[in-house]
Design a binder for these strands. Structure first.
Lengths: 250, 250
DNA sequence: AGCCATGGTTGATCTACATCAATGCAGCAC
DNA sequence: GTGCTGCATTGATGTAGATCAACCATGGCT
């Protein structure tokens, strides 16, 4: 969730030494106050394609993604769908103080989540204010990401949208692997063309066409349909429409 | 910021008895712990059109809108602009723990804000956890609003976008006046066509055309260009594309 | 009053993306 | 091997909204 211009600073607020990965909910990473969280956590697994929570359902837990990819999606009555959240490992989902989720939470790949019963988590927040403080920071980061996403949806061209999404995923992926984002890098695209289109507010055909166009122009190389090589990350960034210093991280 | 299905519940988490209007930062409204906030607050006024903070500048205060309308806007290098926040009276702006704003904050009308030096506010958050808790709720509400906005930007038609924006403003306006939102109501549109287009990810021409179309279809009546009468709020809601139970509040 | 500035409307035309439709291609069951 | 089934690509055509451009309305100023 961290907004940052370098991979290093992104990395710095994640914990890679434990399954939960995020310091806000990881007892091994931070103060003793968080040790109590360790005692009430539990893990849940979901198969690819499985819906974790339906829009409107009660969500009686909060959770952190350990492995895999999940999405938050809103659906209109006539079936139009817009993704509004992309959860990668270490991302948090759930809202203390709110009963039901206003959108579907779906596992895009096989997913393992580290969960806490909401009630227990809320009590913990009261007794250990550091958890709430950390959660506020994470929520503010997510709000920044959502606003960057709004710029993408409202004003970017299809090509810019695709380039932006690839840059986001490449960056997140690279940060987990501590790779160097300047220069070439390779990653697995964890989304189908359809999921990409729901992220970007496009149709899947347009996504496919623009992917082909970026391939023709040498911005990306598709080792397989899902495995992408970026020969020159800076060239990709030029296609995003963002000013050079940044872009966002979901 | 509150997400709710009725005007009453929206109203319930605002305070209309004091200039700050929002209980999170209003000493007269809630626990004694907040009384200390009263001592460090100060007011600032901005003229219509004035930029309150430039993107990238240091923002050394947090604030609550008392009267008037302000906007958060992101700008791309080539000048494309997308509004990412609309601040109506009682809305909060600023981020404890973050130095600079990533977007322009602009006064759309004359604005009065109730401000707190960021440093002092942060110290207060540490000593009075209730402030942080309240802020977390507000931020989560804003995140919900941002996600609803993403659906609008990514998937709604121009007509649906306009209807949605009018419904949002009408609802917010009605909630301040305790009016009945079912039936007819009148309000002042606090945005120019251009500002509306920046909110909706459209051009101002398209905004103008769709406003005319809604007028032709009897969904709205324009008493003047800026004063709107909604003869039947439910009919307007049908045009938004949202399912009947809601819509969002910025 | 006349003039100008600002914001708003409307028309003609263009184009990026959506839509409809066919084809490709990998993995898997049999 | 054959024939699925689920993604992905590519082509032909349609259209919502952008763009370019003219004109209108209101209000403030001299």
């Amino acid at each position: 969730m961290a907004r940052s211009n370098t991979l290093v600073s992104l990395q710095s607020d994640r914990c890679s030494e434990c399954p939960i990965r995020h310091r806000a909910v990881c007892a091994r990473c931070e103060s003793d106050e968080l040790a109590q969280l360790e005692e009430i956590k539990f893990y849940r697994s979901f198969a690819a394609g499985q819906t974790i929570v339906w829009s409107g359902d009660d969500m009686d837990f909060v959770a952190s993604v350990v492995t895999g990819i999940a999405t938050l999606t809103q659906t209109m009555e006539d079936g139009r769908r817009q993704m509004v959240g992309l959860l990668l490992p270490s991302d948090f989902v759930g809202r203390p103080g709110r009963a039901s989720a206003p959108y579907d939470v779906t596992a895009t790949t096989d997913v393992v989540m580290c969960c806490f019963r909401k009630k227990a988590f809320e009590e913990m927040m009261l007794s250990a204010p550091v958890i709430g403080q950390r959660l506020l920071q994470m929520t503010l980061d997510e709000l920044d990401a959502a606003r960057e996403w709004m710029l993408l949806l409202g004003r970017k061209t299809a090509r810019e949208k695709i380039a932006s999404l690839l840059a986001i995923i490449a960056r997140r992926d690279a940060s987990l692997k501590l790779a160097n984002a300047h220069g070439s890098l390779t990653f697995d695209l964890p989304l189908t063309r359809e999921a990409m289109s729901e992220y970007l507010g496009l149709t899947l055909e347009t996504v496919s066409r623009q992917m082909s166009a970026l391939r023709r122009d040498g911005i990306i190389v598709t080792e397989t349909k899902r495995r992408i090589l970026i020969p020159d990350f800076d060239r990709l960034l030029e296609e995003t429409g963002d000013d050079s210093d940044g872009g966002f991280l979901v």
